[in-house]
Every structure is written in C-alpha cells, then in structure tokens.
C-alpha cells in the first residue's frame, strides 16, 4: 500500500518540486545578481547571463517540432501500413524489427550521429545553395534528428491501430470493388485514424521533450526566434542542457523555470491535440 502510494505520488512530487524551484528565480533575491524579471522572462527574445528571455526559443521549439511532425507522420503511417498490410510476411517481420531497433537506440547516439553525419550533410547542402552554415549545426539538422527519432515512436503505435481495423470492414470494401491499395489507403487508414493520431501525439511529446540529441546539433543561438532552417537555433531543452557549469545561483536555478515552461507546453500541446482528435472522431 505504502509502496503503491510512493510509486504513484512520484508524478505529483515531480510537478510540485519543479514548480517551487522554477518560480524561485523571480521571488528570491540572489546575492550579486538580484532576481530575474518574470515579464522579461516570458516576453524576451535574448538569452544571456542576467538577461533571460524565453519567447524566442519557445517559438523555435514549436516551429521545429511542427516541421518534424509534418514530415515524420506520413512516413510513419505509410511504414505501418507497409508492415501490416502490404509487405510479404518475411519482409514485414524484418522491417518491424528494424523499427524496434531504431526505437531502442538511446538519444545520445542519435545526437552523435547528428553531430558527425547529419551536420556534415547539411553543411554540404548549404554549400550547394551557397548558404553559409555554422559547420552544419542548424535548425535543419535538428529537424532531421527529430524526424529520425519520431518515426519509430509513431510507427510502433500506428502498427497496433492498423492491425486493429476490423476485418469485415476491409472485406466489405473489397467486395464493393475497391482495389487492395484503395482499401488500404481509404478504409484502413480511416479506420485506424484515432490510434494514429494518438501515436502522433506521443511522437510530438517525445520531440518536445528530447534534450540530448537536440542540444548536440542545434548550435546555441543567443537570440530567437530563428525561422531560417540553415541558421543555428536554440530550443527549451537545449537551453537546459547546454552550458551547465555551476550548480547553484540564479544562472542555474533559471533552468528550472525553463523546465516549468517545457512541462506546461507539453501538457498544453497534448491537451490541444487530444481535443482535435476528439473532434475528428465525432465527424
């Protein structure tokens, strides 16, 4: 009973503690540096020591996640469709294993791959169009890393929901004269719609909260928002990860405020997307 309580209350404790720590930079007085201004924090576009503005990187985070979602969702849905409906049995099993392996790769390795390979590719693409990049570290690299990391998450859950589409619906469609491909693309995807949407919500959550890999490839721009994909950028999570040297003081504690904002954004996004999902289901 007690153990159950401990396990369950973890989430409550997490939220409570981070919230308390997160608002302290605006209330407590830090010797030498005073306290941070809440107004500046919410509306500022620049992030330097003593000048903490979060709006720029907030827009960056949402912008990069949006692009990554728009690209990775169709790829993932088609992959799930391929595995469940189209591929021959052997091939389907091996592609599924590939996706499972991708899902199990830790983010530090995605980050390393991004730093060494994707940055290099992006740099060369930039050179091709005569665009100078900071050695490849850019918004584009971040988006590519996010896409690669979202695909296994979305695909795995989409597979379950595509498998759950009722067989009689499929048979009905085929009996009405639709071809197999028409059935797969119209009936199966439509039938799995809500599961696929849930998968995308989870993928978006993962992208928003991804820290290690993103901070390894995004550069660390001081000001934002940065909508040019070939420029360096900065996200909420990369701000929390990068330049971690001290373990006390205002410069350290303000990270927790960013953490509060991140949790709030993740919660808000998932609530909004869930609302959209419910609206779609009603139709």
């Amino acid at each position: 009973m007690v153990i159950g309580l401990v396990a369950a209350s973890a989430i409550v404790i997490i939220v409570l503690f981070i919230f308390i720590k997160g608002i302290s930079p605006f209330i407590n007085d830090y010797q030498g540096s005073g306290n941070a201004s809440l107004l500046k924090f919410i509306t500022g576009f620049t992030w330097t020591a003593g000048n903490y503005g979060i709006l720029g990187m907030l827009i960056n985070t949402l912008y990069l996640t949006l692009i990554a979602t728009l690209v990775s969702s169709p790829i993932s849905i088609l992959t799930a469709l391929f595995i469940v409906r189209i591929a021959p049995k052997r091939l389907s099993a091996s592609i599924k294993s590939v996706i499972e392996l991708l899902a199990s790769i830790p983010s530090i390795i995605y980050g390393l791959f991004g730093m060494a390979v994707i940055n290099f590719v992006v740099k060369n693409i930039g050179n091709l169009f005569n665009i100078q990049t900071a050695g490849g570290t850019s918004g584009l690299s971040t988006v590519i890393v996010l896409i690669i990391m979202m695909i296994p998450t979305i695909t795995m859950i989409s597979i379950t929901s595509v498998e759950a589409v009722r067989q009689d619906q499929i048979h009905a469609s085929l009996a009405l004269g639709a071809t197999k491909a028409q059935t797969d693309f119209k009936i199966v995807i439509n039938g799995a719609k809500s599961g696929i949407f849930a998968a995308i919500i989870l993928g978006v959550g993962r992208a928003l909260g991804e820290a290690t890999a993103v901070s390894m490839v995004c550069g660390n721009a001081i000001t934002g928002p940065n909508l040019n994909l070939f420029d360096i950028t900065r996200t909420l999570t990369s701000t929390m990860m990068l330049g971690l040297h001290e373990s006390s003081g205002l410069d350290y504690d303000i990270r927790f405020s960013v953490g509060v904002v991140l949790m709030f954004i993740i919660l808000l996004t998932s609530v909004t997307l869930n609302a959209i999902k419910r609206m779609l289901e009603k139709k």
């Binding site: 396990a7 369950a8 973890a10 720590k21 959550g205 993962r206 820290a211 991140l262």
Partner: peptide, 25 residues
C-alpha cells in the same frame, strides 16, 4: 484508478525533467 493513471503519466515525462527532480531532491 488514480494510482494507475499517475504511473502511466510518469512514463510520459521527458527524461530531462527527471534530471531536474534528481537535482532538487
């Protein structure tokens, strides 16, 4: 049900947030 759903919610929290918890507690 509350306990079960809270445990589910904990698994959706990004790991960087757990790092914060560790640092605070």
């Amino acid at each position: 049900r509350a306990i079960v759903s809270m445990i589910d919610m904990t698994s959706g929290v990004p790991s960087i947030i757990f790092g914060f918890v560790g640092a605070i507690i």
